[in-house]
Write a protein that binds this DNA or RNA. Structure first.
Length: 416
DNA sequence: TCTGGGGTCCTAGGACCC
DNA sequence: TCTGGGGTCCTAGGACCC
């Protein structure tokens, strides 16, 4: 029985994406240690002499984390995910720029369009990376995809002025590893025969899907590299990591991955969350919490409407001052995108949580999504007018105090 | 002076149904 | 004392990724 023909899959990863986009605007920062993160404050200020004044990392106060940094900043030990305050200790003189998602999304659309013009089978993996199936491009199988990979890089650079790194191998798993091997501005090709020499020496955590917990657990068994993982007894991995994950570990270590490049997928959930500038208490900070809670629900309702979805499961997420998180969710009798219905469901969830500890984060999530068009088309009713009302009518909430929750459950005693 | 915000997928127990 | 078995839904938590 013939095996499926060899595929050629590219993983394309933009180099230091947010930082690079910002450098297009602020070329005078090129060559300097620059970090992006910490929210939207600390905007650059234009001085009277026409020069821009930037914030220094050392001047930041708050709970933000680093989203991206230039390679110059990374050389100082600053990495994404790190708290900005901590990064300031390592690189106090680095420039701190605010995040500008609108701008990053604009460049994201530009580079993805450029790629699709070269090779149409593209899988979105977030704002700054994609997989591309090159198998059917003319001549690609002959040169291992080198010409096609260079064409992708050239197209991206022409469209955006930005560089990217590309890995090309027979599957997504290997390409993802590969695109990192020669960053920035790399083009790395690899075939199955190269796995022992190029992949097995790498740390196991280089495999997409082996995170901090699995890395720690593997290390406890003396497994540190991909090669050691490949040499491990599959039965041992099954016994210690479960049927699904254990089997996958063996497959991944040998570079086996049959997942297709998926060009479209429906969203499963939409959410909004916010971390407070200081920890808040459910009783003492009741009013401000209630306001934030409502605001999140209103924003979520707006997101649903804008994207054309309604949700049948509303959930909340709380993070306490000890960083422990809890979630609660509630399935409704019908889909909704109505802010009041969402707020009421979220409030019901909130009542099931002990609110003794102070809170650092509050979030609201909409799951079990359905396209509005699919919900209302059968009845031939106009989407915007009817759908928001579906769940509310069935729940009979119209007479209930929708905005009353655990945050404002205290009896309102009139003063004087 | 630790630790954002937006996601996906998996597991697991209990309810409920046939 | 023993007490099916399979399927689906609901809920909570956790690992992981960008």
């Amino acid at each position: 029985m013939p095996s499926s023909p060899t595929r050629l899959i590219a993983h394309l990863d933009m180099d230091a994406f947010y930082a690079s986009v910002d450098l297009l605007r602020y070329p005078e920062l090129r060559g300097r240690a620059v970090v992006i993160g910490g929210g939207r404050r600390h905007q650059p200020v234009m001085r009277a002499d026409g020069r821009r004044e930037f914030s220094a990392l050392r001047d930041y106060t708050g709970r933000g984390v680093i989203t991206t940094s230039t390679y110059e900043a990374r050389a100082l030990g600053v990495h994404s995910g790190m708290g900005v305050m901590k990064a300031a200790q390592l690189a106090p003189d680095a420039v701190l720029l605010p995040v500008d998602f609108d701008e990053y999304r604009k460049y994201s659309r530009l580079f993805k369009a450029a790629v699709r013009a070269v090779a149409p089978i593209v899988e979105d993996r977030g704002i700054d990376e994609i997989y591309v199936d090159l198998t059917d491009l003319p001549g690609a199988l002959e040169d291992g995809g080198r010409a096609a990979g260079q064409a992708l890089k050239d197209a991206v650079h022409a469209a955006t002025g930005l560089t990217c790194s590309v890995g090309i191998t027979p599957n997504k798993l290997l390409s993802k590893i590969c695109s990192e091997l020669d960053k920035p501005n790399g083009l790395t090709l690899l075939s199955f025969e190269d796995i022992p020499a190029r992949i097995w020496p790498l740390a196991a955590k280089k495999i997409n899907g082996i995170g901090p917990k699995a890395t720690e657990k593997l290390a406890g068994f003396g497994i540190h590299t991909v090669g050691e993982l490949a040499a491990a007894d599959p039965a041992f991995l099954l016994a210690n990591f479960g049927k699904s994950y254990g089997a996958w570990l063996t497959e991944a270590a040998h570079g086996r991955d049959e997942r297709p490049v998926v060009t479209y997928s429906e969203p499963k959930s939409i959410s909004r969350e916010t971390t407070f500038e200081r920890d808040l208490h459910a009783v003492r900070d009741r009013a401000v919490l209630s306001g934030i809670f409502t605001e999140l629900c209103v924003q979520l309702a707006g997101d649903l409407a804008r994207k054309g979805y309604a949700s049948r499961t509303i959930g909340i997420k709380l993070r306490f001052d000890d960083f422990k998180s809890v979630t609660r969710d509630l399935s409704l009798p019908a889909h909704t995108l109505d802010a009041r219905t969402i707020r009421h469901a979220a409030g019901t969830c909130l009542k099931r949580i002990d609110l003794t500890r102070r809170l650092r984060l509050l979030g609201v999530r909409a799951g079990a999504l359905a396209k509005i068009a699919d919900l209302v088309a059968p009845q031939g009713v106009h989407a915007e007018t009817v759908t928001p009302l579906l769940a509310r009518e069935k729940l009979g909430h119209d007479t209930l105090p929708l905005f009353r929750t655990a945050f404002d459950a205290e009896p309102r005693v009139p003063h004087t």
